[in-house]
Design a protein around this nucleic acid. Structure first.
Lengths: 225, 225
DNA sequence: ATCCAGTGTAAGCAATCGCTTAGCTCCGGT
DNA sequence: ACCGGAGCTAAGCGATTGCTTACACTGGAT
């Protein structure tokens, strides 16, 4: 299996934050988990700090022992979430081997990212769709991570075009469309689908290859599957 | 141009609601426009009724002359927006002619919907991403319209598969992925792109055909373009 | 002339918001 | 034995929330 869980605890697969920073105070982690659930259900502005405190089993003031503000709590979540997402993409690309074709790398990255969005759909929904609630400075910082993720996909497409492996007239536009497709999984998963994250990853990887492959050269299946 | 503006005022293309219900009280329309702008900028929960009233040039109480509640104002926006979106899809499909191939219909619908999301990105952002803020009953009603839009795409894909025109192993999953791609335009347009809505529509229609076309049968260009 | 429905505002209500303050308990270091 | 900081809470601050009430103005029908 090329795209690994990268150290995630399989018993806690439904959240990203749960697995992060095991050294931090347990209450701080509980707060982040509680905040992710609340933000995913009602959005940033729709969630009160009392909601979060309740879910974490703390009094309203307990939040501010560990985080300076609601926005900082949200910022920590989005930062960790985006770091994990970027790491997942880079690891998937690296795992396909140093001599991998552009097609193999595209398949690995799209499958990994799609499965990631599905597995961690609660956290992903928060960090994908509530980003404008960040302070301007924090937004810029997190957005830089997003650009790196886009750059990975764009790089693979460009490499494939250069080598003649792909036929992509608009690399930037196609990369954006491709990531839209992948990202949006977090919004609807697991409704409308009885598929596992891995099955979904394979489907989306196939679709991505169809988008990039030149006329009459489409690979029907992944090498090694 | 197969996908028409369907009666939209070209001078007010940036919003959906502006063109709707010209018989309604002007203040009610102003409120809907103001609410769309505010919701798009800050989200439903991030927007106060005083924000909306200010933008519409009314006192805070003026909102409740025309709408029973903030939720009802939001509901009217989402309802009208989804009706227009569905109408746009149906008209695009119909405009491709009664004897059109599945490929022609897919191209027409995807191009029209993509251009629509781009042109009306402010309204689209509100009605696509803040939907869970609706009351349960209103959510069910609007969601029924969404399912009709999905059904259009799914129907075209299924027809193409049946006639041998398409090769789509997972019609439902592909339709969902395709609509994710199209819908997500509203979230980032017009940033990251110097393309017009029409150019973007052509790019996305090409990508959609690549996703659906069987091995070695991809049409490089639209018939008639 | 009078009325009345439609459109609007000033003022304010109860509730909730993010966050602070003052003070408690607990526990490891000395 | 005693200290000091970390973790937590009860209480509450001022601001803002969605919305209501009471009242004013307008223009057309009677």
């Amino acid at each position: 299996m090329p795209q690994s869980d990268a150290g995630l605890d399989p018993a806690q697969e439904q959240g990203l934050v749960e697995a992060w920073d095991r050294a931090a105070a347990p209450a701080a982690r509980r707060l982040m988990i509680a905040a992710v659930e609340a933000f995913a259900a009602r959005g940033y502005h729709g969630t009160s700090t009392r909601d979060i405190a309740d879910r974490a089993g703390l009094s309203p003031a307990g939040v501010y022992v560990h985080f300076a503000s609601k926005e900082e709590l949200f910022y920590r979540i989005t930062l960790v979430g985006h770091q994990q997402t970027l790491r997942s993409a880079l690891e998937a690309e690296a795992a396909s081997g140093p001599a991998a074709s552009a097609a193999e790398r595209l398949r690995a990255v799209v499958a990994a990212q799609t499965a990631f969005e599905a597995r961690h759909h609660t956290t992903a929904r928060v960090i994908e769709y509530d980003l404008p609630c960040l302070s301007p400075e924090h937004f810029i910082e997190v957005n830089a991570l997003r650009r790196q993720i886009t750059a990975v996909v764009r790089g693979i497409l460009a490499d494939g075009v250069k080598s003649g492996e792909f036929d992509v007239p608009d690399v930037d536009g196609t990369a954006l469309a491709l990531l839209s497709m992948v990202t949006d999984v977090a919004r609807w998963f697991p409704a409308n689908s009885r598929q596992t994250p891995e099955q979904l990853g394979r489907l989306y990887a196939d679709l991505a290859l169809r988008m990039a492959a030149p006329h009459g050269t489409r690979a029907a299946d992944a090498p090694g599957h």
